[in-house]
Design a protein around this nucleic acid. Structure first.
Lengths: 241, 241
DNA sequence: CCAAAAGTGTTTAGTCTACACCCATGT
DNA sequence: ACATGGGTGTAGACTAAACACTTTTGG
């Protein structure tokens, strides 16, 4: 039972990586909203050619959250509106070499997707080998990334139920129909407009504006997200000394 | 924006540790139940002499869960009945050297506490520098372990509300009063016996036995935990291939 | 005026909580 | 018998789903 204390070099060959599952709601060819996520095509073994989650190695001089943001930006050019740690994956056989991956999940506002992509295209620094996929219809991924995405989806759907996290996928101002559509897309089912309205305005997370979106029918009031309330608990509030 | 890809040695000086917050319900001098956890006194710098969470370095040949169990056993001699990953802490300044800690939290059945402690005492391999503390009244801890424990407590109290996880703190057979007492101890408030009974037996997590605990008054039926239902979701079901 | 989405009201079923009450046992 | 915790019943409060209904615009 008692074990000789190991030398400090015991973990010399364990490396730490950071990956991020980042969701956004994009429109397909029929203008239907689709819960989507970007993947990066691997250009080396293992899993050369396979699609994988964006990520990279943890730098010794940066915190985990920062590493997640940085590697996401480096590989995809995207900056999320919401970022939360998901889980640390560390099975011995999940990669040929010993890698512990700290996985984050993130949300990207729908108006930012195209804006950020376009900006990189203009700047000539468009990320390569990046493609968006329907989150519910993915190709087989590298490593254990299939499991990771599945768990992330479960967590997202769960969290949408008890927090107002869907705002992280919308622009500053939006209608209740927009918000409801995002929720419907995530959950994959229709929600009652009347009851949805009541749920959000008893939750105090929305601030009504005096502006309206005018369309083909009765104008809908625009709302803003109330920044006084947290989007959702993000874990242990990483000791912001 | 674009960054030169780093060499594979970028994270050479990041080490991975595993720590565990393990709870049990112990009796104080007045026989009152107290939510307690064991701490280990550090015998070297940094924080020499301070109390810290049990843990140790991740071995390159073992998974994260296994490492949590092993380091817990090595430092305290305890074997948990429930183990779940909590969070990965990796702020740059949380330790003089760069350490990413994967923190687990665990439960230990009340009948196991003394049994395991006694077994080690007999075997002469009693763990040193280990002491149990009231979880709500801890001394200042080493590193960021104060924050970690606080977050763990929050998570435990939360989870007790929507899952039947308190069974992890009880022996195989127990009365509803036992189970309720554990819940009360965790939550720090009284629960209505009648309503508590209904909650648990609509949840299908308990199997009634034909045995009764006889005491000073009307005998109470003993229940067993229904192993067909999971205690609680433990995260992404670590790909048990 | 009509279609369609925005927004309001109401009915109902289910759940949660407090608490009154009966039951079974050791003293 | 009686005190005490084990166990059941139930009325009121609160919540959530379903859906009828009114409002406001564009065509």
């Amino acid at each position: 039972m008692t074990r000789t204390p190991a030398p400090e070099t015991r973990d010399a060959d364990v490396r730490v990586a950071v990956s991020t599952v980042i969701f956004s709601v994009r429109r397909d060819e029929h203008d239907e909203p689709v819960l989507s996520l970007p993947l990066v095509r691997r250009t080396r073994d293992p899993f050369d050619g396979r699609w994988a989650l964006p990520g990279g190695w943890l730098d010794a001089t940066e915190g985990l959250d920062v590493a997640a943001s940085r590697t996401l930006a480096e590989t995809t050019g995207l900056t999320p509106s919401y970022l939360e740690q998901l889980y640390a994956f560390g099975a011995v056989d999940r990669s040929p070499t010993r890698v512990v991956s700290i996985v984050y999940w993130a949300l990207l506002r729908s108006d930012e997707v195209d804006a950020q992509v376009a900006a990189h295209a203009r700047g000539g620094d468009a990320p390569e080998n990046v493609e968006w996929f329907d989150a519910t219809d993915l190709p087989p991924l590298a490593f254990d990334h299939d499991d990771i995405v599945e768990y992330t989806l479960w967590r997202l759907r769960n969290k949408v139920g008890y927090s107002r996290i869907a705002h992280g996928l919308l622009p500053d101002e939006f209608t209740l129909a927009d918000l409801r559509e995002v929720n419907e897309t995530i959950l994959g089912k229709r929600l009652d407009p009347a009851n949805f309205r009541r749920q959000v305005d008893t939750s105090d997370t929305l601030i009504p504006t005096e502006r309206f979106r005018t369309g083909s029918h009765r104008p809908a009031r625009l709302y803003r997200y109330n920044r006084d309330v947290e989007l959702a608990d993000r874990g242990p509030l990483p000791t912001r000394h």
